[in-house]
Design a binder for these strands. Structure first.
Lengths: 230, 230
DNA sequence: CGTTTTCTTGACAGGGATCAACACTAGTGG
DNA sequence: CCACTAGTGTTGATCCCTGTCAAGAAAACG
């Protein structure tokens, strides 16, 4: 995708908004506002259960378009909440479709986004189903590093990781207490350090190995390339 | 979607194929064959882990189009395996796009399919992250009942559920042994019966309540309706 | 029928949950 | 500037849900 095409997508018009930490950006049944494009901050789609538990479904970082092609009316089934103070832009479905029609590279970028988002959710399923607590954390930290890098954010010497241990628990299907203890294990193993909401990967190779993190599913090599062979 | 439109989608041309139980229908890097449309049998997309564990990502029932808009070349990241003897048809991406262009209802049906598939994966995440073993099983059985019904397959008086307890474990992130014991609990509670691969829901209301199954995420009411307001 | 797969059961171990304090940090207001 | 408060991180003790290992039944299959 060329700079120009990227500019088209990132420059999509739409009403800007912001949400404080803990507030919802979007809720089911509150009318279709369009597709949120995260400008700053971390947010997530989540589900609340009867017993008060929360499960975070997907994490959105700055630059992420929440659902590239949006939803049909009446399909916004899960709330979108701000995990930190977040600013965003609501772009209309039509604007996105228009951009896709204008440039083949744009359209391809949107498909790419959709498929990578799907893969991220699938890796999430693998983590929740078959990985231990420490492995889930390790996998997440590896994924975040790559995603931030792909979004053009700096990750040299670590990155800011604003999630609380409770957030991590809700994302990875664990209790805050157990997140705490697993983090200590990771620190003790010399794989990471995490203090003041700043995460540093101290031994990337070993961390990736223990978490079985294979970056292929993020298709980073295609994220900024020209149109492929289709 | 009218009968005619549905016929267009279900009647999509493509090379037919079949796979015995346990064999793969599609593997990463084996060239792009198009989009598999399951005709008969149950299949799944899965991932294998280093220690031999398997995690099933999504389950496909007869009539399911595996990824409504297909993937981009080089994006088939997970194998598609047959859980029972399966027959399928490989339809080309172009054919699907052509059908979508021909009829607005067709296009809408494809979007619907994409969004419902996404919701199913998200509920899967919730189950794996926050539900107990018995709840996961209960939720799955409720979901399968609805999906089979939506696909036009009979569910009156129960339905055939060909998955082994090992398959259920790989789907729900559990051990076969624990699946076995949790099933016995569900039977003892009078919620279900499962024998000879036939499942009967004995108390739907209570089963849905204990699993917190809310059918809304499947959007059944829109699956066979005409074009909405978009 | 014999063979393989699947289901069932028992004993035991362990990862993660739960409950409950306490420490630390940061923001607030007097 | 210093309590005061609320949120977050840390730790300990204990419980239990689920995993592991192993062996038999039962069913499916050729």
């Amino acid at each position: 995708m060329s700079q120009a095409d990227e500019a088209i997508l990132l420059g999509l018009r739409g009403s800007s908004g912001q949400a404080d930490k803990g507030r919802d950006i979007t809720r089911p049944h509150d009318g279709s506002h369009g597709i949120p494009l995260i400008v700053k901050g971390w947010s997530c789609r989540y589900q609340l259960l009867g017993n008060g538990k929360r499960q975070i479904l997907t994490l959105y970082l700055p630059g992420d378009l929440c659902e590239p092609f949006g939803t049909l009316p009446g399909f916004a089934d899960y709330p979108l909440g701000a995990l930190t103070f977040t600013t965003y832009r609501m772009v209309s479905r039509q604007a996105v479709f228009h951009a896709a029609g204008e440039s083949a590279a744009c359209e391809r970028a949107l498909w790419w986004d959709l498929l990578v988002a799907t893969n991220i959710e699938r890796e999430h399923i693998v983590s929740l189903g078959r990985r231990s607590a420490a492995e889930r954390l390790g996998h997440l930290f590896c994924e975040l590093e790559m995603r931030l890098e792909m979004a053009g954010l700096p990750t040299h010497g670590g990155y800011d990781m604003p999630l609380t241990q409770a957030d991590l628990g809700d994302l990875l299907g664990l209790t805050p207490v157990h997140v705490n203890r697993s983090l200590q294990d990771l620190r003790a193993s010399g794989l990471i350090s995490l203090e003041n909401r700043r995460l540093t990967i101290r031994n990337r190779a070993e961390l990736r190995a223990m978490a079985e993190f294979d970056p292929a599913y993020l298709h980073a090599e295609q994220s900024r390339r020209g149109a492929g062979g289709w």
